[in-house]
């Protein structure tokens, strides 16, 4: 692995680079040879384009996200601002409850601000959050969408709930702090969203 690779995820490789002397991250979506071209190529183009659109909209909604420096849709490349902070996933299990509560409320606030503008992240896990300058940056909008549907907002939060259960099983109380932040900042009916989450849990197999 060349040493400028920061992270190799399931669908993209992140490499550290520069953009006019600014530290930058190149996010390159990798074609998957297990998928036929008819599925793979449109998917990569679509996700790259959607991700860029959603990052821009999230920024105007007031959610901390990296700046976009450049985009190459056809080759599935995004050039993004480099964030040096740690992932929330890597620090969460070692944080004190008082700090944790503040962080979780900020996470909830971010999600609420996205949802206020009908923006769905699509993969809210603690791997996709970076802690920098006391702010929580949301990254990886590759599975995101824009919709007014309550269902999508419920699923969005449910993904995070599951992430807490599977990756931070000693810290599942975090999700209620996330919901505290969400309730405070969501301008729609947060009761309805919570009802939806409950419904999605019940819908799961063997619940």
């Amino acid at each position: 692995m060349p040493n400028n690779i920061i992270y190799q995820g399931a669908e993209a490789i992140l490499t550290k680079t520069t953009y006019h002397n600014l530290p930058a991250v190149q996010k390159q979506r990798i074609p998957k040879s297990y998928r036929i071209k008819e599925i793979d190529t449109p998917l990569i183009t679509y996700r790259t384009k959607e991700e860029a659109k959603l990052i821009i909209e999230a920024r105007s909604a007031g959610v901390p996200v990296p700046l976009i420096y450049d985009i190459d849709q056809k080759n599935g490349i995004l050039l993004l601002e480099y964030l040096s902070g740690p992932r929330i996933k890597d620090i969460l299990n070692n944080l004190e409850n008082s700090v944790l509560e503040t962080i979780c409320q900020k996470i909830g606030k971010n999600i609420a601000m996205l949802h206020n503008h009908d923006l769905i992240h699509g993969d809210i896990t603690t791997s996709n959050m970076i802690y920098q300058d006391t702010q929580i940056f949301f990254i990886d909008f590759g599975l995101g969408s824009k919709t007014t549907e309550l269902e999508a907002k419920g699923v969005d939060l449910h993904v995070l709930m599951e992430a807490f259960e599977s990756t931070h099983s000693q810290k599942t109380h975090c999700f209620s702090w996330v919901m505290d932040g969400y309730r405070t900042h969501y301008t729609g009916k947060s009761k309805a969203v919570e009802q939806k989450i409950h419904e999605i849990v019940k819908r799961g197999r063997y619940r």
Partner: peptide, 18 residues
């Protein structure tokens, strides 16, 4: 087959990365 299995393979890979 191509669509469902590709989706299954992708989420499996996501879980492995995660």
């Amino acid at each position: 087959q191509e669509t469902t299995f590709a989706a299954l393979t992708e989420v499996t890979e996501r879980a492995m990365a995660h």
